[in-house]
């Protein structure tokens, strides 16, 4: 068992495109759930619509990548409006059911062979990163330090991703300290109270849904820039993983989603490197290497349960600003 290699793989995960994408998704979800109390169970759908909007704009319509990214974000806005209009006037669990259903509808639409020329069906989409890589100002070659040694193109994804994360964090921080954020936090606790003070609760919730949706879609786009787009990624489980990441860090905090998503991926990478290694040296009898990979997800599920039960405010949250109001 090469323990150094396991540590190195774990640390390398910090800057992986998937991690950066999850950080953004968790930030967006913190706007939805953490601050506004909206039960968005369609995180995977928002990520998918960002990623596919980006990839299809380039492959089918031949647009330059910055414009394609904007279209991916715009598609998320439309998606948020479609989700919000029927459900935001209803009790919270209706939004949960509708978002989870809509995300699944999206995935099936991307998966069906009917639209193969556009969506690539089960094979997904690839080969749309050329324009993005052409805009890479970094020196070519492979460079970096220790576990963080990447190709120039990978560095370009990481830099764009980190800048996007910084913008998202700043945006959420600015929004939440403003009077707008005050109304949003009030709505999370009691819609009727805020409505009785002359605030249009529906409009505020819709704005929060759109803002969070845009940030989640940005996460989908960043992930797509680094890897390919495949419908099997955007399953309901992905939504649950983002929820786990968010709750781990602290849902109603600014840096919680960042910390949570990074930790989530580090722990996952650590376990999926460590457990098969333990199996191979015979420390985990009864398990095959494949089974030990599934054990990682069993542990993720158990961790989510324990978190919600014993530390619902997450690592960075305070007990006073409780996450679960209802």
């Amino acid at each position: 068992m090469n323990f150094l290699q396991i540590i190195s793989n774990t640390l390398a995960q910090i800057l992986a495109p998937a991690t950066l994408g999850y950080v953004l998704a968790a930030i967006g979800l913190s706007v939805h759930f953490g601050f506004a109390g909206l039960l968005n169970m369609g995180v995977a759908g928002f990520m998918a619509i960002g990623a596919y909007g980006f990839a299809i704009s380039i492959l089918t319509f031949g647009l330059p990548w910055p414009l394609a990214a904007l279209i991916g974000l715009a598609a998320a806005v439309v998606f948020a409006l479609i989700m919000g209009i029927p459900t935001l006037r209803l009790r919270g669990d209706y939004l949960a059911i509708v978002t989870i259903a809509a995300a699944e509808v999206l995935r099936l639409l991307f998966l069906t062979s009917t639209f193969r020329p556009v969506t690539g069906s089960a094979d997904g989409l690839s080969g749309f990163q050329a324009g993005f890589r052409a805009s890479n100002p970094l020196p070519p070659g492979k460079w970096g330090w220790g576990p963080w040694t990447y190709q120039s193109d990978q560095w370009w994804v990481i830099i764009v991703g980190v800048i996007t994360i910084a913008i998202a964090v700043l945006l959420v921080w600015a929004l939440m300290r403003s009077p707008w954020g005050r109304v949003i936090r009030g709505i999370r606790e009691d819609e009727d109270a805020v409505g009785s003070l002359g605030k249009n609760v529906f409009a505020f919730k819709m704005q929060a849904l759109v803002v969070g949706g845009i940030i989640i879609a940005a996460g989908g786009i960043i992930t797509a820039m680094g890897t390919n787009v495949n419908p099997n990624v955007y399953v309901t489980s992905q939504t649950f993983y983002v929820w786990t990441a968010l709750l781990l860090g602290g849902a109603a905090t600014i840096f919680g989603p960042v910390l949570g998503a990074v930790l989530f991926w580090m722990v996952r990478a650590f376990l999926s490197n460590l457990l098969p290694a333990l199996v191979s040296i015979g420390w985990l009898p009864f398990l095959t290497p494949e089974q030990s990979q599934m054990l990682v997800f069993v542990l993720v599920g158990a961790a989510l349960m324990l978190l919600v039960i014993f530390r619902p405010q997450g690592i960075l949250g305070s007990k006073k600003e409780l996450t679960f109001v209802r």
Partner: peptide, 11 residues
């Protein structure tokens, strides 16, 4: 609800 999601994943 979220506990049940965790349980669902684990099971």
């Amino acid at each position: 609800m979220i506990v049940s999601i965790g349980l669902s994943l684990a099971l």
